[in-house]
Design a binder for these strands. Structure first.
Lengths: 163, 163
DNA sequence: TAGAAGTAATTCAACTTTCAACTACCTCGC
DNA sequence: GCGAGGTAGTTGAAAGTTGAATTACTTCTA
């Protein structure tokens, strides 16, 4: 495995400050996400499904190509397909053929779906405030935006993996 | 559904600054976690499994009661049971009966398991630096710790759900 | 010291997610 | 206008996750 070209790099372990920042962030985030999910459970929605419906409800005509929806809601195409089947059964969405591209489909939100998300939205927003935003000052919000903008912009395919 | 006691609360939607902070944080976090997971994939480890093994390797005797391990690695007991079965098959851990409490078991890390985590750890730490810590100043780290300490401490069972 | 109540861990069944394979269609170059 | 290669979306099987039920204890209380 080791070739002569390889330099055995000494791992730079995290110092206490780094460790604290990293673990506090990761653990609090995990727990907060769990809480948000459980706040939505009463509406038979997971965060992921909420996100899908929210994006769809914002789209012109509450209608979006499957791929585009998958993209902006950050789920895989396959996962979206499966979830759509479930939400279709619940009567929240339906599929509509795309005349311009006969391979494609639109995901369309039904009135029932719109009502469902409209019902859940205030709770979810309150939930985001309670669990997260209320603990940030305006300055914190701006600082956080900056930090995570940097994090995200550096994220495309450096390091180890293919794309 | 609406009773006379209930006040129809106007939802306080997020203003642009709040929205930006929330979405940037959530989206960047999601993508970063994905990246960290894929950085670990070469070691046949998910972040969750890494966390379990890391906690175990830090424990005295590399040995911990199942419940305790589940707790500190933040996975459910049931999930830990299932993962342990997989990791046991990989030869990374084994179960050991607990003589003091015959209901209980210890999760014990094998040498092979220790080597596996030792191999993965430098990459993972590098990964955490590359993907996250490198984008934070020292002040950012401290600020972030403060923010997420607040978030976490307010998280226990307010709002909507049981506990 | 019996037996009620509580706890540790696993199991089962239902559900969700992933990954790779597949179908059907589009696009481009020649 | 044909065929190679690309893209849209679905599917099916395998793997992972959840939550409730279950088993096998321990602990507490009267």
């Amino acid at each position: 495995m080791a070739t002569s070209r390889e330099v055995k790099k000494e791992a730079r372990w995290l110092n206490p400050r780094e460790m604290k920042a990293w673990r506090t962030y990761i653990i609090a985030s995990r727990r907060m996400l769990e809480a948000l999910d459980s706040d939505l459970a009463g509406y038979e929605l997971s965060m992921a499904d909420y996100e899908v419906l929210a994006q769809l409800s914002d789209a012109p005509g509450r209608k979006l190509r499957m791929s585009e929806l998958a993209e902006i809601a950050m789920v895989s195409k396959s996962r979206l397909s499966h979830r759509m089947k479930v939400m279709e059964k619940a009567g929240w969405v339906r599929r509509e053929e795309c005349p311009q591209d006969r391979r494609g489909f639109f995901a369309v939100m039904t009135d029932k779906g719109f009502k469902a998300i409209e019902r859940a939205a205030p709770t979810h927003v309150e939930s985001v405030r309670n669990r997260f935003l209320d603990h940030l000052t305006v300055k914190d919000q701006e600082e956080l935006s900056k930090i995570f903008d940097r994090v995200q912009s550096q994220l495309r395919g450096q390091f180890i993996n293919e794309e």
